[in-house]
Design a protein around this nucleic acid. Structure first.
Lengths: 299, 299
DNA sequence: GATCACTGTTCGGCTTTTCCGGACGGCAGT
DNA sequence: ACTGCCGTCCGGAAAAGCCGAACAGTGATC
């Protein structure tokens, strides 16, 4: 009999366009994925994919089988999801990617009691600020701060995220506090960058505007952003979940302007239909409840 | 991921009512079937079947999963059948059960050229007059002479089968030839029996009637039926496919009566939906064509 | 009411499959 | 010609598949 692994390998290969991409998504070695495809073709007695090392193209048989295989795979996923639903307890593996600073400060503390309440849940957290490709890299979900471009994913809001312009008391004393967006041009700024530098976006009556200060530092890590601001390097735009504590401790001061920074959200995104499991929903619900609205770090 | 073998084992267990029956149908050891079920339950984290050594009962989860598993399994079968269809050549295993005498005289000779034309076909013929249970014993099809009682099977007619009352010239000389059904009561008869003795059924205006002669011999083998008639033991009712040659050779004579024996058919029956494959259809088509209508042995 | 036939599970063992990393050969674009 | 990738092939180690036999529990039977 034909195996489910072989079918899901086949649809993964077709959907991701190559064997190595499918292997990455499925977290298997490419040799295994190649073998599975070969085995499937052998047991069907048909060539599914015509392979030139540079490109894969479906044969007619392959296209016909793809349709059926896709439905079968998704029905299998539905079936196990249904059973998981019926069984009260959450169990099994979940892989989530999340950004560094938010995870350390809020995601982890929110998750730990949830995990000890569900001992059969096997959560793998991949902490990395790089924008991972949830689908290609085989994550069940990614948590991100800010909009998610990938239209193949569906995104759930976990919490709103107010951002605030901050600086050390020392810096403001030396350079004065800006009052308007125009003032910012003469200040030094500390910018977060991941792929390309991110500008500061403010809300105005005429819609959002981008403004910049003279870059004193560009860095791809939220903790260092905060630390640099505390060290008096310049202004920076920090989410409340980072800035909250140092403000309370008197290490940073909020700079009140005539305009508010644009509102952001923290999202959880997952591949469409792909196992939007009870597990994931429970985790999202728990996080929403724990964070609150407005989130506790903005209170 | 959940395996197809496990799902098909599960539906086989439910449908056949026990693990050993399922093992027989799937031609696997009962220990393996038991293991598969256990593994499936473990990977779903749910009890599918509540087991008391004497009886299996579906749990609610089991009933819910059964529905889905059944559909999945049948869709998988459809998918491979579809691919087999598209691929011109017939390939893979087929298991057919067939009766002894018919197989030796006609089925085998009809099949051999077909098999050499399809070298990738792996046919297993189980020659046995016992009425096997196609579904429970895991046959793809059974070939039978006469009606098939099992309503779970769907039956295709392969050929009509005229039967004739015959005896040796010697016997008829000694006892005279019967002319009417009433005459038969004073004759000796040779009967075919498999489970219980089979009567002779004749066609009349008032519908079919059962008649019997005094049993000289009851035997469950067509060849011996013929041989006993040739030896002059009595009258017997033989299908034309058996009686044809000895009549031609002058070893048996047809006894013409006022009524005709009931018409029978040779059937090929297979479990509903279960892989009513291109293979099976091709075999049936070939047999129908080879036998002809009326079949060559009645010409 | 003990026996008996039959069920499902467990165990030891052998074989086959699974799975990976690394090596290999082929394809396109610099 | 060189250089990235890509898909396949190739050991070898780990895991599973698979079976027969032995075991333990259940109902029906004598």
């Amino acid at each position: 009999m034909i195996k489910t692994e072989a079918m899901s390998a086949f649809v993964a290969i077709v959907e991701s366009g190559s064997i190595v991409a499918a292997a990455k998504r499925l977290r298997l070695s490419k040799s295994l994925v190649s073998d599975r495809l070969a085995e499937l073709e052998k047991s069907l007695g048909v060539v599914l994919l015509h392979r030139t090392t540079r490109k894969l193209t479906l044969t007619e048989d392959g296209a016909a089988f793809l349709e059926r295989a896709r439905r079968i795979v998704s029905e299998i996923e539905d079936a196990v999801a249904d059973i998981s639903e019926r069984r009260g307890t959450l169990a099994g593996p979940v892989r989530i990617a999340a950004p560094v600073t938010f995870s350390r400060l809020h995601l982890g503390p929110a998750l730990y009691p949830f995990l000890s309440r569900h001992p059969e849940l096997k959560l793998t957290l991949e902490i990395d600020d790089r924008r991972v490709d949830a689908l290609a890299d085989g994550y069940d979900a990614v948590i991100r701060h800010g909009a998610i471009a990938d239209t193949r994913l569906i995104a759930w809001k976990l919490a709103s995220s107010r951002r605030m312009l901050v600086a050390s008391a020392d810096y403001l004393e030396r350079h004065g506090a800006p009052k308007t967006l125009e003032d910012l041009g003469s200040h030094r700024g500390i910018f977060y960058a991941n792929r390309g530098v991110s500008d500061w976006r403010f809300q105005t009556e005429a819609g959002p505007v981008l403004v910049r200060a003279k870059p004193a530092l560009v860095v791809n890590n939220g903790d260092m952003l905060r630390d640099a601001a505390i060290a008096g390097l310049g202004l920076t735009l920090l989410p409340a979940f980072i800035a909250g504590q140092p403000i309370k401790d008197g290490l940073l001061q909020v700079v009140e302007m005539d305009q508010e920074p644009e509102l952001e959200f923290i999202y959880m995104a997952h591949p469409q239909g792909r196992n939007a499991s009870a597990k994931l929903r429970a985790i999202a619900d728990h996080l929403r409840k724990t964070f609150g609205d407005p989130p506790y770090w903005e209170a």
